[in-house]
Nucleic acid binder design. Structure first.
Lengths: 210, 210
DNA sequence: CAACTTGTTTGTACATCATACAAAGATATG
DNA sequence: CATATCTTTGTATGATGTACAAACAAGTTG
């Protein structure tokens, strides 16, 4: 019953968000009584966070399975991005993250989830990429965290700006590209001789065709 | 009165979040009647989004004023990050962004805010940095968007993981460092045209005449 | 078997809250 | 003054999250 409630909650919350879904609706979808939600999870918000955490971990683990496919680094990243972006898992989980700003009691679950995300899902990705020379100087942990941080930013802003999943994946790849392969501590700002950078010149990523 | 309601709402929402603050509480804090919130803003959520948008733009503009201080690129970025992170503006605004997932009618305001953020606040920063050889190959628009995207990701994850503002700023600098100054070589993607025209919408805060 | 414990379901009561709505008051305009 | 618009003041209501009680099932122990 508990998992049935989680399933129904996950689907409804993902579709309509926390505030728009009542516990009565979730109970109905799971063929249960509203009080059972109070019983298994203490509050609606706790159910929300738990469903979001379960989902994002599930998606991350599924995405990890791309590792065996012998893809090129960019294709591999692309596949992972598609998996993560395809399901609403990131947006769903982000909504759970914002909750913890005022529900500190739910923070531990979110923290554990992020840590497991790094350890179980993204770290394998990072290691795989490093083995192929992509961001080789970043240790897997840093690389994994970076992937996740950027995924959050890109997803959230992309959703707000109404961008397509296609655009989000492209932006992810841009921000994750091998140019980020450098020592983090590098505040060594070498003054580059700059001649150009006239605004409005060529938007980045213009000269695509090789 | 309208601005007094916005002020009270901004403070309370930032402290306790959308769900935890009732319109009655906001009205009380502004010495007004709850119905006046319905009058000036149609719903509580609209008030929330408008307050968040106002705040994040205010902070961004204030941060822009660091431009005249002749700081080094890293110090300049650091000052901007501190300004942006210091106030809860980003977290507040992010909560507004998640709202637009289910309140599409509020999306235009958020979109306009992000665009103004880029144009008014961050683009000056980006241009300044480019003039000093930092990320010189990125046009200001891209650089500004990148700053914002990363700020969102870092802030949100940092909050959820309970990191200090110090850590967040350091992580921002790492992700924004000059090592990101390069064209992705392995990731040449087509950049789908994302420049959608903002649908003609009403100017600034409308007074709502029933 | 009986008594007790524990986990789960079924059902009710209640306080809170966002919103709708009414109507009075204010202010400007002709 | 008359009229229209904006704003304030006040009330009503439907929905909802949660607390709580009691019924129920199923072991476990004496």
């Amino acid at each position: 019953m508990r998992s049935r409630l989680l399933d129904a909650a996950s689907r409804l919350f993902k579709e309509q968000g926390l505030a728009a879904v009542s516990i009565a609706a979730i109970a109905a979808a799971a063929d249960a009584f509203p009080s059972q939600i109070t019983y298994y999870f203490r509050t609606k918000e706790a159910l929300f966070v738990e469903a979001a955490c379960r989902d994002v971990l599930y998606v991350a683990r599924a995405a990890e399975q791309h590792a065996g496919k012998q893809l090129s680094p960019s294709d591999y990243t692309r596949a992972l991005v598609d998996s993560v972006m395809g399901a609403d898992a990131v947006g769903f989980f982000v909504e759970a993250m914002t909750l913890t700003r005022r529900r500190q009691d739910l923070a531990p679950l979110v923290e554990r989830t992020v840590e497991r995300l790094h350890a179980e899902g993204l770290r394998a990705y990072a290691a795989e990429m490093a083995a192929r020379g992509w961001q080789s100087r970043l240790d897997p942990e840093t690389s994994a965290r970076r992937f996740w941080t950027i995924a959050i930013g890109v997803t959230l802003e992309g959703q707000a700006m109404g961008r397509s999943a296609e655009d989000l994946a492209a932006e992810m790849l841009r921000l994750l590209g091998p140019q980020a392969d450098a020592q983090p501590e590098a505040t060594r700002l070498r003054l580059v001789k700059t001649g150009d950078s006239a605004p409005g010149d060529l938007p980045e990523g213009q000269g695509e065709a090789p």
